[in-house]
């Protein structure tokens, strides 16, 4: 009986203290995910014993979580400082972790705020993959891709596509892609060709989806151009900007409210036509003059 009483009193104490603890706001805030305990890939590989693949998986999950978490954070100064070390560790532990190279380079190349905007690191990662598996033409293709899409360096892109075409098992469309890139790099048609190949041939469902999104973006860019022409024509005729799409519809220039390929209405602003808020096609890729 006495024993039961003691237990009840102690249990009440634990509950009470936990409540006090909670009111205090829990643990003092620490900067999350700011530490990477093992930075040396060699050391990590040794310590992994027979669990290298599993450790690679863990670092990969961490990389994905880190990328996603940073992307969603509201901190205006958000950095992706750990992204490359995490990917480097993943691919050092398992040099054939191909998805880590492909997705990882996509994450790294993505422009701020959606990513760190480091196409140079993306290319470094892919080159590491090419060193580990010198027979995979896909790495060369993806390096060309990063040059094409994120650096708008069409000469380099064409050179890498050309290299990819040299691989014995490269697909036949690789050589024409190199030629088109050199001749018409930066044009939407050549971009469309590039993404269409990915959408048709990528092994990974995620990549095929990404390529389809890119193709939709290209469609949206075409649509925005046409809408901009209509807006510009209205402005030349009436001397003022239309207040909204309804005005253009009443003027007979449009059938209804224009929507992007994902169904989100475009926005009409003084600076021009843009994607509507919440469209998953945002942000559209920058288009620059062709680099010479």
């Amino acid at each position: 009986m006495k024993g039961a009483l003691i237990l009840v009193v102690l249990l009440a104490g634990v509950v009470g203290l936990q409540a006090v603890h909670e009111r205090g706001g829990g643990r003092p805030a620490a900067r999350e995910e700011s530490l990477l305990y093992v930075r040396s890939p060699e050391a990590a590989a040794r310590l992994a014993l027979s669990y290298r693949s599993l450790l690679a998986d863990l670092y990969w999950i961490r990389a994905v979580q880190y990328y996603g978490g940073t992307r969603l954070s509201t901190d205006p100064d958000r950095q992706y400082a750990l992204l490359y070390p995490l990917l480097d560790l993943t691919t050092s532990l398992e040099p054939r972790f191909n998805v880590a190279y492909y997705y990882g380079s996509t994450f790294l190349a993505e422009a701020p705020p959606g990513g760190p905007g480091r196409p140079d690191l993306a290319i470094a990662l892919l080159q590491k993959g090419l060193r580990a598996q010198p027979g995979r033409w896909e790495f060369a293709q993806w390096i060309g891709f990063v040059h094409y899409w994120w650096r708008q360096d069409y000469e380099q892109a064409a050179a890498w596509f050309g290299r990819a075409a040299q691989f014995p098992n490269a697909p036949i469309w690789m050589a024409p892609l190199a030629a088109t890139t050199l001749a018409e790099g930066g044009r939407r048609d050549s971009s469309r060709l590039l993404w269409q190949q990915v959408a048709d041939t990528a092994e990974d469902e995620g990549f095929r989806n990404e390529a389809r999104r890119r193709l939709l973006q290209l469609d949206a860019m075409d649509q925005i151009d046409r809408l901009q022409q209509i807006v510009n024509g209205y402005r030349q005729q009436r001397g003022v900007l239309p207040a909204d799409w309804d005005e253009l519809r009443r003027a007979g220039s449009l059938q209804g409210t224009p929507v992007d390929p994902t169904g989100v209405p475009y926005r009409l602003q003084a600076e021009g036509v843009t994607l509507g808020p919440g469209s998953r096609l945002f942000p559209l890729p920058a288009e620059r003059a062709r680099v010479r």
């Binding site: 027979s50 693949s53 599993l54 998986d57 990969w60 999950i61 994905v64 998805v99 469902e205």
Partner: peptide, 20 residues
């Protein structure tokens, strides 16, 4: 859990985990 955590690599990770 892994389906919630990672992109695409569920099967590979489950294989790694199962064997380990």
């Amino acid at each position: 859990l892994i389906g919630q955590l990672t992109a695409g690599q569920d099967v590979k990770i489950i294989k790694d985990l199962g064997l380990a």
